[in-house]
Simulated scan of single mutants.
Amino acid sequence: MRDSWFSASHGIMLLLLLGFAIAHSGLAALRGWGESKIGARLYRVFFALVSIPSATVLIIYFFNHHYDGLILWQVQGIPSIKAVVWSLSAISFFFLYPATFNLLEIAAIQKPEIHLYETGIIRITRHPQMVGQVIWCIAHTLWIGSTFTLLTSLGLIAHHVFAVWHGDRRWYQRYGDEFLKVKERTSVIPFRAILEGRQTLQWQEFLCPAYLGVTAFIALLWWGHPWLIAVTARVPW
């Protein structure tokens, strides 16, 4: 029922978000123990086999129910609002995806490591995935305006805010005082460390294949977005 508050899809999405958060953050927390048992590469594969299907289910369910519940506002008819939403979405991907640069480690071709660095996007914010997720949620909630999308966005943001604490904790466990020094020179809030003089932005660091790949991905997503919506609509969820 699209005209009623808190339809069944709202509760299902909450459960899906909770399940994903437990699986993703839980496996991240168990990384040290898991790698000691089965090795870093195999644990990365196991992590991917759990996380990727969970995320895929979330994405499909969101696409198929994003207008469920009440429509709290309607701004799609406002001139230029679509450009604003697409611009925010594009910016969000530059924060979301260059957070991990070594694709060979992601694919477990090289031994996965917990890296501590402060270059590129990390100079802007120590937790780019959280910032990117917040921007993405703001853009999509603004465009759609439904209670289902608002609930989904709040759930995603809550998980990523938790991941800020969780990530800092794992970095400290791994690097100790070395991480504390990096923490002093970086910030969670975008550009804060730069504005306070604790960090300096180096634009040349953004001239790398990772950002070129993200740009290509954004262009592909823009082109294929209608097709993606049509394909996911075929899933009977």
Score class of each variant (00 low, 15 high):
Arg2Gln: 12
Asp3Tyr: 13
Trp5Glu: 04
Trp5Ser: 04
Ala8Pro: 05
Ala8Ile: 13
His10Tyr: 02
Leu14Lys: 07
Leu18Ser: 05
Ala23Leu: 08
Ser25Arg: 04
Leu27Arg: 05
Leu27His: 05
Ala28Val: 08
Arg31Asp: 03
Gly34Pro: 00
Glu35Tyr: 10
Glu35Arg: 12
Ser36Gln: 06
Lys37Val: 12
Gly39Tyr: 15
Ala40Asn: 15
Leu42Ala: 06
Tyr43Lys: 07
Arg44Gly: 03
Val45Trp: 09
Phe46Ala: 13
Ala48Phe: 12
Leu49Val: 13
Leu49Met: 09
Ser51Tyr: 10
Pro53His: 10
Ser54Trp: 15
Thr56Ile: 09
Thr56Asp: 10
Thr56Met: 13
Thr56Ser: 10
Val57Cys: 09
Leu58Thr: 02
Ile59Val: 14
Tyr61Phe: 06
Phe62Gln: 14
Asn64Glu: 10
His65Met: 01
His66Asp: 06
His66Gly: 00
Tyr67Ile: 06
Ile78Lys: 08
Ile78Tyr: 14
Ile78Arg: 10
Pro79Gly: 13
Ser80Trp: 10
Ile81Arg: 07
Lys82His: 07
Lys82Met: 08
Ala83Pro: 07
Val84Asn: 01
Trp86Asp: 10
Leu88Tyr: 05
Ile91Cys: 03
Ser92Lys: 00
Tyr97Lys: 12
Thr100Ala: 14
Asn102Thr: 04
Leu103Phe: 15
Leu104Thr: 06
Leu104Tyr: 06
Glu105Met: 03
Glu105Ser: 02
Ala108Phe: 08
Gln110Pro: 15
Lys111Asp: 15
Pro112Trp: 00
Ile114Glu: 03
Gly120Ser: 04
Ile124Ser: 15
Arg126Glu: 00
Met130Thr: 05
Gly132His: 01
Gln133Glu: 12
Val134Gln: 02
Cys137Lys: 04
Ala139Met: 05
Ala139Phe: 08
His140Pro: 11
Thr141His: 03
Gly145Arg: 11
Thr149Ser: 12
Gly155Lys: 09
Gly155Gln: 06
Ile157Ser: 05
Ile157Asp: 04
Ala158Arg: 04
Ala158Val: 12
Phe162Cys: 04
Ala163Ile: 13
Trp165Leu: 06
Gly167Ala: 06
Asp168Ile: 02
Asp168Lys: 07
Asp168Ala: 04
Arg169Phe: 07
Arg170Glu: 15
Tyr172Ala: 00
Gly176Phe: 00
Asp177Lys: 00
Leu180Pro: 00
Lys183Ser: 00
Glu184Gln: 12
Thr186Trp: 03
Thr186Ala: 08
Pro190Glu: 03
Phe191Leu: 12
Arg192Leu: 15
Ala193Gly: 04
Ile194Ser: 13
Ile194Arg: 11
Ile194Leu: 11
Leu201Cys: 14
Gln202Arg: 11
Trp203Tyr: 08
Trp203Thr: 11
Trp203Cys: 05
Trp203Asp: 14
Phe206Met: 07
Phe206Trp: 12
Pro209Met: 01
Pro209Glu: 02
Ala210Pro: 15
Thr215Cys: 13
Ala219Asp: 12
Leu220Phe: 03
Leu220Glu: 06
Trp222Leu: 09
Pro226Leu: 10
Pro226Ala: 08
Leu228Ala: 12
Arg234Thr: 11
Pro236Tyr: 04
